[in-house]
Design a protein around this nucleic acid. Structure first.
Length: 105
DNA sequence: ATAATGACTGAAT
DNA sequence: AATTCAGCCATTA
């Protein structure tokens, strides 16, 4: 990884692994939780650096609005949506109800 | 040192 | 409620 410090990535992964199935967090929320408020975009990059077979549940991280990120991407949003639904998260029009599925720890 | 970039955000329209 | 715009911040060129 070249864009974000390894330590930052490790903390992101560690926290994301603690998100329970069926619950979600926002990028900025994750950043703030590990002590890096304002680094929402970097959380995104850290997750993007994960291999396709990672055990990190990156699909449980969405935008603060509840929208699925990477709308420009063709494949990943579909996978993310499928995995979330498999965990019982209700998604309507590419967005989830944060009030109901959001998680703070 | 200036400018561009990106799995983002919050306020304004 | 949906879109647009202007900040955000570390990394690159």
């Amino acid at each position: 990884m070249s864009k974000v410090a390894a330590e930052f990535c490790e903390q992101v992964y560690a926290l994301v692994r603690t998100i329970p199935p069926g619950r979600v967090m926002g990028y900025g929320q994750v950043a703030a939780a590990i002590g890096f408020p304002g680094r929402a975009r970097h959380v995104g990059f850290a997750l993007g650096d994960l291999p396709p077979d990672t055990d990190v549940p990156w699909h449980r991280v969405l935008r603060a609005s509840g929208h699925i990120a990477m709308q420009g991407d063709l494949f990943r949003p579909l996978l993310q949506q499928a995995r979330l639904r498999a965990e019982g998260v209700v998604i309507r029009a590419d967005k989830v109800e944060m009030r109901r599925f959001g998680w703070s720890g």
